[in-house]
Nucleic acid binder design. Structure first.
Length: 442
RNA sequence: UCCGCAGUAGCUCAAUGGCAGAGCAUUCGGCUGUUAACCGAAGGGUUGUAGGUUCGAGUCCUACCUGCGGAGCCA
């Protein structure tokens, strides 16, 4: 099948090889033929390029082999790179020779439409499609931006454990693990408490890893297993958290705009949506948010009248954030709907110094955080009040016995953030292998 | 867990209670610039499962299973 002597190139870098002969190693994306001319489109993970093979310029046996190749056949081709307006992508390769590694028949995912269930059952193959490729490239950039932002801002990565002895917040449903002698363990739902320890050690610290929620949630914003980044700062307040949130989110948006323009185009995402994400973000007191919801109800935009004291539902969040093209930061929630470790407003004890950052366009809460309680006595009361096992929290209480200071932090869901950046419907497409209520495979 | 919608060829979908269909995919043939290529032909079905109504059920009824959308809860 001809020798592949030309230097290897990647499709994303073809512009540097115009006029040269190169070898591309990849997979067949699509094949069109017209009797004596073939147009194999090759995909190599960095892009897609159209090749041209003329019957009278290549070996007859190669012609026969290429003609019958099915979608996703693995092959390497050698040919000369040429700029051509007719080709999708702008460059074309005049194929001289090729080597087929794997001949494929009946690739399940065709260039036509498919349903979600079918695609999710074939997630391991679906990842190869243009749209999924683009989404995961954006995810990669979101993750990289988060790490770069925090690293450049003096944060130290100090990851929290996945196995934990107790619920962090005593609210969500946990996955139980039966392994540790005489004691039940759970998969983490937040690295929050551990971050308070690392923040006291490093000043500014963050953890970044998978998180598990056993809730029977079936919405476009929920995964059973998702990734969360949680920065925590010693000697910091609610206000510092809000400032850090808006700085980080705008940094992420700028990085995505900067390095993923091609992918945003593939996803048909309007860049103006991301360009709008610049500080300052609107800040709104919970009381004012409730007033706004009441106004919405009076005007007929909200079906039910919101009661002060509750947490916002998805329609409430969408209504509140609907007035802005930037994330909306709602702060000073009623303490009752927030975690036990939240610091209280010294002026109004019933309010927690917490903030939810609501993304525009109905993407909901992408960040939740706030200032933590510093008083040992207060936390002991809260643990008793929430009927949490005090022994499991002794180490946490040590943080208040030995050098307790005001400190604050937040958690950001990577998938929600990525879905928002991409402008896509559902978070399940923003993680390579999503785990949902009804999905454990592939 | 609750509410709503759906399940027919490998995939996406049609079919008034009356012969089980189309496009794509697959196989074969044609075409020297195709852009989800096109043209011609062929193969492909226990209509989610179990029961019921009916002369007759993909279609109507009951239960169950699976999926989707939403709620609650959350990032």
């Amino acid at each position: 099948m001809g020798t592949l002597t030309a230097p290897r190139a990647f499709i994303s870098g073809l512009d540097e090889h115009v006029g040269q002969e190169v070898t591309i190693k990849g997979w067949l994306y699509n094949l069109r033929s017209s009797g004596k001319i073939l147009f194999p489109q090759l995909r190599d993970g960095t892009g897609v390029v159209q090749c041209v093979a003329l019957k009278n310029t290549i070996a007859p046996e190669l012609w026969e082999a290429l003609k019958g190749l099915g979608q996703e056949s693995a092959l390497a081709i050698t040919g000369t790179v040429r700029a051509d307006e007719r080709a999708p992508g702008g460059y074309e390769i005049d194929l001289r020779t090729a080597e087929v590694f794997n001949e494929v028949r009946d690739y399940p995912i065709t260039p036509k439409e498919h349903g979600t269930e079918f695609l999710m059952d074939h997630r391991h193959l679906w990842l190869r499609s243009r749209r999924q490729h683009a989404i995961l490239k954006v995810r990669h950039t979101v993750v990289k931006a988060v790490r770069d932002f925090l690293d450049n801002d003096g944060f130290t990565l100090a990851d929290s454990p996945i196995f934990t002895p107790a619920a962090c917040e005593g609210t969500s449903t946990l996955f139980e693990v039966d392994y540790f002698d005489g004691e039940k363990a759970y998969l983490t739902q937040s690295g929050q408490l551990y971050n308070e320890a690392t923040a006291a050690a490093f000043g500014k610290a963050y953890c970044f890893g998978p998180t598990f929620r056993a809730e029977k949630s079936k919405t476009r914003r929920h995964l059973t297993e998702f990734w969360m980044v949680e920065p925590e700062m010693a000697y910091a307040t609610l206000d510092d958290v809000m400032t850090l949130s808006e700085r980080m989110l705008s940094y992420i948006a700028a990085r995505v705009l900067d390095s993923r323009a091609e992918e945003l185009k593939t996803l048909e995402r309007d860049p103006a949506r991301l360009e709008a994400i610049v500080p300052p973000f609107p800040r709104m007191h919970y009381d004012d948010a409730v007033k706004l919801l009441h106004k919405g109800h009076d005007e007929g935009a909200m079906e039910t009248r919101f009661e002060w004291g509750g947490d916002f539902g998805a329609p409430d969040e969408t209504y509140l954030s609907g007035n802005y093209d930037k994330p909306l930061m709602v702060h000073h929630y009623p303490a009752e709907v927030k975690a036990f470790y939240m610091a209280r407003d010294p002026e109004r004890n019933e309010l927690a110094l917490g903030v939810d950052v609501l993304a525009p366009e109905g993407y909901g809460e992408v960040i939740g955080g706030g200032e933590r309680a510093t008083s040992l006595q207060f936390l002991e009361e809260q643990i008793a009040l929430h009927q949490l096992p005090k022994e499991a929290f002794e180490w946490y209480l040590d943080l208040r016995r030995y050098g307790s200071v005001p400190h604050a932090g937040f958690g950001m869901g990577i998938e929600r953030c990525t879905a928002w950046m991409c402008g896509i419907e559902h978070v399940r497409e923003t993680i390579p292998f999503p785990r949902l209520m009804n999905r454990l495979r592939p």
